[in-house]
Design a protein around this nucleic acid. Structure first.
Length: 499
RNA sequence: GGCGGCGUAGCUCAGUUGGUAAGAGCGCUCGACUCAUAAUCGAGAGGUCGCCAGUUCAAGUCUGGCCGCCGCUACCA
């Protein structure tokens, strides 16, 4: 048994949960559920990033204190994740005392190790963009309003010192960042030259106080990144940290590569943390299709997506239709099409037709799988492919491989025509083998569709929950012993009309 | 501007270190079947692999140029 610690980025609380957040989080959830099937010890973490100027401003605009603003939005994220069945083990908020303590301890180490110094930040600030900008930004018209020169005494992190160590890390760990395209991008950032970065601010209060200079607070990014260490027990639980930190994997979007894949590893080195995380980077979820844009689904909360397709329908379609890495198009039409073809037709309908024939030809009792089934080999191959894909954080590939079992089972069932056979061994073998395919596919699909998988599991006469199965044994042919009641029931994934 | 990425069948995407007649799912056409959620199964049509040039016995797969789209370039996954 091994440990598996997976994080999503923590989400900034000036923005309501939307499909992009859901994409990252559902992917992480499914990957963790797969790891649990393997019997690994898993910690799955998500949470909210609550400090910084934008939160302070948003609070003022809403007539709230920053804490109230953070409380409200953080709760919305938590509700959204509960709604789409995200089984997180820890939900961190950067305003929690444990995180404040952790950040102060972490940064104090960096300071004590001589990687932080006091300097003068001198930069251009665009009020309308609420952001610091470069001269190049101004020259090339990427700034929406007037800029003013800001001068501030800040503490700087000696990022420039870490270019070499970072390159050594890339040399040493060929798979530190996947997919490769993003590894190259991070490498490009490092090779492009790293300047020291200002990590504190005096211009706002809503942040974590610098332990060696209480007049300053940490700039929100450098507080936020440390959350991953907080959850692993960085401050106050050295044993836990030693055990879990080496198992760390970060899931993130390509827009935050710089901070995660370059700055964060450098900070860890500065704090004297030996183990560096693995990074899995994904592209954007692009929203295409007219119906989708009609209701501005790119801004809509994840809850709205589940009204028609159910939680599992939404989760499945998103995981199956987005290849992890590149940007992906996602649309209402695609979602409907995926739901219908894969869930209603290939899975739900197979379940229904088998149950109907079990009822008419086997008295409603599922017969056992036959040991020498022609489906045995292809099912094993599908498991191997799915397993490999989950390991590589490729849910779409894993689910496609899993559905091969269902396609094969439908083909077999069709070819054997059990509904025409007389009751007896021959029909029992066909039914048992098809049920066995459903049993295995249900386990393998459960990370994507946990609730529906649990229902399907009961329908074919299994007891317990597919989530409690252990791979790889549970995926081996012959696990369906038969002799239990198969339940026909209502369609597991009812068809949805397209209007 | 700088750095990086993408452009393969109608759609969404796969295509190891260049090498048998370019793949999958969906969609479409035709046929079969009727156990099932008008589901399922079979057959088929459909691609000059963005464009041009080059390297090579051989390029979707390498090199150069061009066109189009996109990301990052200090606080949105």
């Amino acid at each position: 048994m091994s440990r598996f610690y997976l994080t999503t980025p923590i989400f900034y609380v000036n923005d309501a949960p939307h499909l992009g957040h859901a994409y990252t989080t559902v992917t992480a959830d499914a990957v963790c559920r797969w790891q649990r099937l393997l019997g690994n010890d898993v910690v799955f973490m998500t949470g909210t990033d609550e400090h910084g100027l934008k939160v302070q401003r948003a609070a003022e605009a809403n007539g709230l204190t920053p804490q109230e603003q953070a409380d409200q939005t953080s709760e919305r994220f938590r509700d959204a994740w509960d709604h789409i069945n995200i089984a997180y083990d820890d939900y961190i908020r950067t305003t929690e005392p444990r995180h404040h303590a952790s950040v102060r301890a972490f940064m104090q180490r960096c300071y004590d190790n001589g990687h932080i110094y006091k300097g003068t930040y001198d930069g251009l600030y665009s009020v309308s963009d609420e952001a610091y900008v470069t001269q190049a930004d101004v020259d090339e018209g990427r700034v929406s309003g007037p800029v003013e020169r800001m001068t501030e005494e800040n503490y700087f992190f000696k990022l420039s010192e870490f270019a070499e160590p970072l390159l050594e890390w890339f040399e040493r760990e060929p798979e530190n960042i996947t997919p490769t395209r993003y590894r190259n991008e991070a490498l490009g950032i490092i090779k492009g030259g790293l300047a020291d970065v200002s990590v504190t601010r005096t211009s706002l209060d809503w942040g974590i106080r610098v332990p060696w200079d209480e007049s300053q607070v940490f700039y929100v990014w450098y507080d936020a990144l440390i959350n991953y260490a907080t959850v692993a027990g960085y401050d106050g639980d050295p044993d836990r940290f030693a055990a879990w930190w080496p198992a760390t994997r970060h899931l993130l979007g390509k827009d935050i590569i710089r901070f995660h894949c370059v700055y964060w590893p450098a900070m860890l080195m500065a704090a004297g943390v030996k183990d560096l995380p693995k990074f899995h980077v994904h592209g954007w979820l692009l929203i295409g299709g007219e119906k989708m844009s009609k209701s501005k689904l790119n801004q809509i909360s994840p809850e709205n997506m589940t009204e028609e397709f159910g939680v599992d329908g939404f989760r499945y379609a998103m995981l199956r239709d987005t290849s992890f890495g590149p940007d992906n198009d996602f649309s209402y039409e695609a979602l409907l099409s995926r739901y219908t073809s894969d869930l209603a037709n290939a899975f739900g309908n197979l379940l229904g037709r088998v149950a109907a024939v079990v009822e008419s030809k086997a008295g409603g009792i599922g017969p056992a799988a036959s040991p020498d089934s022609p489906l045995r080999e292809s099912t094993a191959a599908a498991y191997e492919a799915a397993s490999k894909a989950w390991e590589q954080v490729q849910p779409s590939v894993a689910l496609d491989a899993t559905w091969q079992i269902l396609r094969d089972a439908n083909e077999y069932f069709q070819r054997m025509e059990p509904w025409k056979l007389p009751e007896g061994n021959e029909v029992n073998a066909v039914l048992g083998d098809t049920l066995e395919c459903l049993r295995i596919a249900t386990i393998l699909a459960s990370p994507a569709i946990p609730d529906a998988a649990a229902v399907a599991w009961q329908r074919i006469g299994m007891t317990g929950n597919p989530a409690d199965q252990r791979l790889p044994e549970a995926a081996e042919w012959g696990g369906y012993g038969g002799g239990t009641q198969v339940i026909r029931g209502d369609p597991l994934f009812p068809r949805i009309s397209s209007d």
